[in-house]
Amino acid sequence: MTAGTKRQRDMRKALTRLLPRVPMLDAEAILDVALAGHLRHLPPSIALWQAVTARVRHAHTDYEQLLEEGYDRDAARFFVIEAMNDTLALWGCARRMEADEEDGD
Rank of each mutant, 00 (worst) to 15 (best):
D26K: 08
L35G: 07
T87D: 07
R95T: 08
M84H: 07
R12Y: 04
A75G: 02
W49Q: 07
E82L: 00
R96G: 00
W49K: 04
Q50N: 09
Y63L: 04
H58M: 11
A47L: 02
H41C: 02
A89K: 15
E82H: 11
L48C: 10
S45A: 12
R40L: 09
L18H: 06
L31V: 00
H58P: 04
G104D: 08
R40S: 05
R55Q: 11
G37W: 10
Q50D: 09
L35H: 12
A54N: 11
R40P: 00
I46W: 02
Q65M: 10
D100H: 12
R21M: 05
A59F: 03
W91N: 01
C93D: 04
R55W: 02
A27Q: 09
A89Q: 15
W49I: 02
D26E: 14
S45F: 12
P20S: 08
R57V: 09
G37D: 11
A14C: 11
P43K: 14
I46H: 04
R7H: 11
E102K: 15
A83D: 15
H41W: 13
D105M: 05
P44E: 09
I46A: 10
V22P: 07
R57N: 05
D86Q: 14
R21A: 13
A47P: 05
M1R: 11
M24K: 14
E98C: 01
Q65V: 10
A94W: 04
R12I: 03
A29N: 10
Y71I: 00
P43L: 12
L35F: 07
P20H: 03
N85G: 00
A51I: 13
S45R: 15
E102I: 13
A34T: 00
L31D: 03
L39S: 04
H58G: 07
A14H: 10
W91F: 10
W91G: 06
R73Q: 08
Y71S: 00
H60Q: 11
A59I: 05
A29R: 10
R96S: 08
L42K: 06
L67Q: 03
L48E: 02
L48V: 00
M1Y: 10
W91A: 01
G104R: 04
L39K: 07
D72E: 02
W49T: 02
M24N: 05
E64T: 14
L48D: 05
